[in-house]
């Protein structure tokens, strides 16, 4: 464990807390993409299925349970919460996710770390899907033009988590002899690159004060 990975996990937890605060606490799903929330639930339920047989550490175990629980809770409230449904904009949340899920599934089967193990294929699928899962959310924000304060912090924390993981991978590559995870590195790079535009506008709007809303052109 290194500081980058720890901060990355904390940033990921923060993004969940912000989103739960908005959706469950604030009873509002305005500006939030259900499609992204559902893809994240798929990402965690597929990647962490090794909870059933793999025990790397208590920290890992607990966070995996937390991420699965939080992502399913968010989808549940966005789908069945009365006030959340009322504030969720299904027409604008229209990114064709089948064009994301299908290619990731094909890639997961073709490019993974052990072709003999079905879990490796599912795991690779989850890594690829996570890289593009944010697209419907960014698409929705782009459409709406203005990003509500809490939502902007949620997206920022979510983007920061994988950016911090990039530093973690560089650190591990330099300090551990035979450490290589090309699949994760490339996917993490793509994932973080998708946030660059948002990061820029987030920084522009927040440098004038943390509670200014983010404007996307």
């Amino acid at each position: 464990m290194n500081i980058f990975r720890f901060l990355g996990d904390m940033s990921h937890i923060l993004s969940f807390l912000l989103l739960l605060h908005k959706i469950v606490g604030g009873k509002s799903a305005a500006g939030i993409s259900l499609r992204t929330a559902e893809m994240y639930a798929i990402v965690f339920c597929t990647r962490y299925i090794d909870l059933l047989w793999n025990f790397a550490s208590l920290y890992n175990y607990l966070l995996k349970l937390l991420f699965i629980g939080a992502s399913l809770t968010i989808v549940y409230f966005m789908r069945y919460g009365p006030s959340q449904k009322a504030t969720y904009n299904a027409d604008e949340d229209a990114f064709p996710v089948q064009y994301l899920i299908a290619p990731c599934a094909v890639l997961g089967v073709l490019i993974n770390q052990d072709h003999s193990s079905p879990f490796e294929m599912v795991w690779a699928f989850s890594i690829y899907l996570e890289a593009v899962a944010i697209l419907p959310q960014l698409f929705l924000l782009q459409k709406q033009g203005e990003v509500e304060n809490l939502t902007s912090h949620y997206v920022f924390a979510l983007g920061a988590y994988r950016a911090l993981y990039l530093l973690n991978w560089m650190f591990r590559f330099m300090t551990e002899p035979d450490y290589q995870q090309r699949i994760v590195w490339l996917s993490g790079l793509v994932q973080t690159a998708l946030y660059c535009d948002f990061f820029y506008h987030y920084y522009q709007s927040k440098k004038g004060g943390l509670n200014k809303s983010v404007k996307l052109p």
Binding site: D9, D50, N54, A56, S57, N60, Q113, S117, W123, Q181
Partner: peptide, 10 residues
């Protein structure tokens, strides 16, 4: 075993 060890990240 290698595969499992490798999966020490979230």
């Amino acid at each position: 075993v290698l595969a499992d060890v490798k999966k020490d990240e979230l």
